[in-house]
Simulated assay, not measured.
Amino acid sequence: MKKFRSTIEQFVKELKLRWASIPVKKQQRYTLSFFSGYALLTVGIIFHVIIYQTGKPSENVRIEKIKNPMEQIEKRKIVLKDSLSVNLKNKFYERDSK
């Protein structure tokens, strides 16, 4: 893990040195071009989501009453047990009453 961390730190140092060696005007042009690309991509995604996807009506969505899933299960499969009729104690674990 230490070797991996030192490799990453060395790579970051090299990138900082390469960036510092570029003239300031070129750094400003790179920064402006990356920001412009990011802004253009953001505007494009916002346009696509808000105007394109929400603008056209979807015919696939149907509004219906919610159905109870228990009605779909066959009545004979459901066996209701009263909790009072179930013997929760096991004779093996009970104490002898003497």
Rank of each mutant, 00 (worst) to 15 (best):
Thr7Pro: 04
Ile8Tyr: 11
Ile8Gly: 02
Ile8Asn: 00
Phe11Val: 14
Lys13Asp: 08
Lys13His: 06
Leu15Asn: 10
Lys16Asp: 03
Leu17Thr: 14
Leu17His: 13
Arg18Glu: 13
Arg18Phe: 08
Trp19Lys: 15
Trp19Met: 12
Trp19Val: 15
Ala20Val: 05
Ser21Cys: 13
Ser21Leu: 14
Ile22Thr: 12
Pro23Ser: 11
Lys25Met: 10
Lys26Asp: 13
Lys26Asn: 05
Gln27Ala: 03
Gln27Asp: 00
Gln28Val: 02
Gln28Cys: 01
Arg29Ser: 13
Tyr30Cys: 04
Tyr30Met: 03
Tyr30Thr: 03
Tyr30Pro: 01
Leu32Lys: 13
Ser33Cys: 08
Phe34Gln: 01
Phe34Asp: 00
Phe35Val: 12
Ser36Lys: 03
Gly37Phe: 07
Tyr38Asn: 10
Tyr38Lys: 01
Tyr38Asp: 09
Ala39Leu: 05
Ala39Asn: 01
Ala39Arg: 07
Leu40Ser: 05
Leu40Val: 05
Leu41Gln: 09
Thr42Pro: 00
Ile45Gln: 08
Ile46Asp: 01
Phe47Asp: 05
Phe47His: 07
Phe47Val: 05
His48Phe: 09
Val49Ile: 07
Val49Cys: 07
Ile50Glu: 04
Ile50Asp: 08
Tyr52Pro: 00
Gln53Phe: 03
Gln53Ala: 01
Gly55Thr: 01
Lys56Ser: 02
Pro57Tyr: 12
Pro57Asn: 04
Ser58Met: 12
Glu59Asn: 11
Glu59Ile: 13
Val61Gly: 03
Arg62Ala: 09
Arg62Tyr: 08
Arg62Thr: 11
Ile63Ser: 09
Ile63Trp: 11
Lys65Leu: 03
Lys65Gln: 10
Lys65Val: 02
Asn68Phe: 01
Asn68Ser: 00
Pro69His: 00
Glu71Ile: 05
Gln72Phe: 08
Gln72Pro: 03
Gln72Lys: 09
